[in-house]
Design a protein around this nucleic acid. Structure first.
Lengths: 203, 203
DNA sequence: TATAAGTTAAACAATTTTGTTTAACATTAT
DNA sequence: ATAATGTTAAACAAAATTGTTTAACTTATA
């Protein structure tokens, strides 16, 4: 049996990513995915038997993409402050590349958190622990005062970064900012977040 | 024509709130709402013709509830720091009372932001401007150094507060924390956020 | 060039969900 | 007690959506 035009399969997966990111599992329509992929509906089911199969593939890819980038911050830098800045840079890049990813994750967290915990990538996730270690070192060196935990620090950073992406549609509507103004807003905000976070833990 | 057993109507609205908060518009099932309200399906349509009508009512109430409480911070306090602390307290109270509200708002922001901007309450919303004024005063008095805007400060606070509520299901799953442990985690986090935010803008 | 693989449009079955109708029953107020 | 109001269960119609089937067509390749 065949089943192997990788290009078509990829087009479907890629369209699925966009649609699932924008609408979540329930809101997504396989018809729209097929259309965006430029492919007939039977083709979609030919490569991915069910909507669920397709969703799981997107889910795995998305989390892998997100976590891999986040982890990079810890391999590329060693000092807390630099790691934090790097992490913020990387996460902004991730969301710039996939703006729907933030709400996608929020959606799953809400709809079906068990889905996330079942991912093998998640089990290997060590970021809070890595942060704990760096924070402890920094406290020993009197670089920071705060007794914050790695988990809380990470939640803070996620919250600060993700917020504007969730909020973006509202800001756009309310203040009528065009895409370019939004980009500048986000660019500036990124730097603001860095100093905000640093001050937040320094004292 | 009748249409006025306020108690039943209220039961329906209240059940609808829970279901819409937990599942969003698309994910919500009118059948489940009727069931939770302890009422037959035709009754639901008797008081609210369509699912959409019911949703709009919940939407209005939810935003009104959220914004009214947030605004209170500015009437009850006058100093930036105290306003911030009050706001954080009030928002935590809001989310403690309606834990699904956070993801509900995120959901709409994603699914249909136009819905939010069309709310009359939103147009009257002045919080960023109120913050701008307080921040300027505080800078004049050398209480704070940061040049942060009211809008960004508000985004920061929202992000920091909302995050754990979105994240909660995952934390619960991953670390197996029971409801009580979650409450303590949130309680502690609330105070952490206060100092985190204050340090963030002070320097 | 013949064959297999990839693809499509069209039609359809099955399911889910919303909203309506009907006929009957219960409750309240007149 | 009688009429209006509130309520239910049951059945149904209409629409949307997923997944499948069929028969035909195209393109690469053996």
């Amino acid at each position: 049996m065949g089943k192997l035009n990788q290009l078509t399969k990829q087009k479907i997966l890629s369209a699925a990513e966009t649609v699932f990111h924008e609408n979540g599992f329930q809101g997504a329509r396989t018809t729209l995915i097929a259309k965006k992929a430029g492919v007939s509906r039977p083709m979609l089911h030919y490569y991915y038997r069910t909507k669920e199969d397709l969703f799981h593939e997107v889910l795995r890819n998305s989390f892998s993409f997100f976590l891999t980038h986040a982890q990079d911050a810890f391999s590329e830098e060693t000092n807390v402050r630099l790691v934090i800045n790097k992490l913020i840079d990387l996460l902004f890049e991730v969301l710039e590349e996939k703006p729907g990813l933030a709400s996608f994750i929020m959606n799953i967290l809400n709809e079906n958190p068990a889905l996330i915990t079942s991912l093998s990538i998640i089990e290997k996730e060590q970021i809070p622990a890595l942060f704990d270690k760096l924070l402890e070192e920094a406290r020993d060196n009197n670089e920071i005062q705060s007794a914050i935990s790695g988990e809380n620090l990470l939640l803070n950073i996620y919250g600060l970064i993700v917020m504007p992406y969730l909020y973006a549609p509202l800001i756009r509507f309310k203040e009528n900012r065009d895409e370019n103004e939004m980009k500048m807003f986000l660019q500036k905000r990124k730097e603001d977040i860095k100093t905000f976070v640093w001050n937040g833990i320094k004292y």
